[in-house]
């Protein structure tokens, strides 16, 4: 009912095309407009447009509307800095390569450990009882607090970064895998049982296929969580990596560079989440859309 409107009295003609186009893309139109206004406002703050415009009216009360770029940078400065780092000096590429490697290894390890553990504890009730307290405790802990321990164990190197990314990503994966098995449709299990399916066969033909959407949803969560690891893992004395670059630039008040780094990580996060989402849509083709 939401996509159709009742035609009221005296309004039987359909609306003109422009109005219809707007009605259909209202969200996008609004969003773009708001985004552009926001960027303009930001740019104006750092260039003093608003302060200059209002000074004749309200005098020095307008001064706070000029914010030095060292605090907030500006869209144009960020764009220029990004151009410099990606194209002119190409300095960001080595950081990207390093971060991508630690990310891939950390997330890979989280999948390799989290999925089997989650699936098994969903399937074997007693195993879930055994690991339950550990999962609950680990889940309640801000995993980043483990960083000092990790550094004691493996030092400042690549291994520490991989481990912190692993620690952040493993839980969403394990927990979603566990609940995936648990919420398997009992009717399907009954059908399979009545056909005399063995345990392993049951797992492979019923549990696993119906678990895939959950696993992917967990993965999508984990992709975002693991991004935190890039920044946090490189807090301490890392020389390379996007996170290290952000931290270094922050301590030198190079705000433009910080924003470039933040945006790069955000973009990478969105890209990966979208990738998982696309896979989800492929896999879920058999399922009625909601």
């Amino acid at each position: 009912m939401s996509t159709q409107t009742v035609i009221g009295e005296g309004h039987v003609e359909r609306p003109p095309p422009l109005v219809r186009w707007y009605a259909e893309h209202r969200r996008a139109v609004f969003g773009t407009l708001v985004a552009i206004l926001f960027l303009l406002f930001w740019e104006g703050l750092s260039r003093g447009w608003w302060a200059d415009a209002l000074r004749p009216l309200i005098g020095h009360a307008a001064d706070p509307l000029l914010v030095p770029p060292i605090f907030i940078s500006s869209p144009s400065r960020i764009a220029a800095e990004a151009w410099r780092m990606f194209v002119v000096t190409r300095e960001i590429w080595s950081d990207l390569r390093f971060s991508a490697m630690e990310y891939a290894l950390g997330l890979g390890a989280a999948i390799a450990v989290g999925m089997p553990l989650g699936l098994a504890s969903g399937w074997y009730r007693r195993l879930s009882y055994a690991v339950g307290p550990f999962l609950a405790g680990f889940n309640a802990t801000p995993q980043v607090a483990l960083l000092p321990l990790i550094i004691i164990w493996v030092g400042f190197g690549l291994a520490a970064k991989i481990l912190i990314i692993f620690a952040l990503a493993v839980l969403p994966i394990a927990i979603s895998a566990q609940s995936a098995v648990r919420t398997t449709d009992a009717r399907l299990l009954k059908v399979a049982h009545s056909f005399g399916a063995g345990e392993w066969h049951l797992f492979r033909t019923i549990i696993l296929p119906s678990a895939v959407p959950f696993l992917l949803a967990g993965l999508r969560l984990a992709v975002g969580r693991a991004m935190i690891g890039i920044v946090v893992g490189e807090i301490f004395g890392s020389a390379v990596g996007v996170g290290a670059m952000i931290n270094r630039s922050g301590s030198r008040f190079e705000t433009d560079k910080v924003f470039v780094g933040v945006l790069v990580i955000a973009a990478a996060g969105m890209l990966l989440a979208e990738l998982v989402h696309q896979i989800e849509r492929r896999v879920e083709a058999w399922r009625p859309s909601v």
Binding site: T3, Q4, T5, V6, I7, V12, R14, R20, A23, E24
Partner: peptide, 13 residues
């Protein structure tokens, strides 16, 4: 009499 306008298909029901 009740008519609906469906913008997606640009039809009246």
């Amino acid at each position: 009499r009740l008519e609906y306008y469906q913008p997606r298909t640009d039809t009246r029901l």
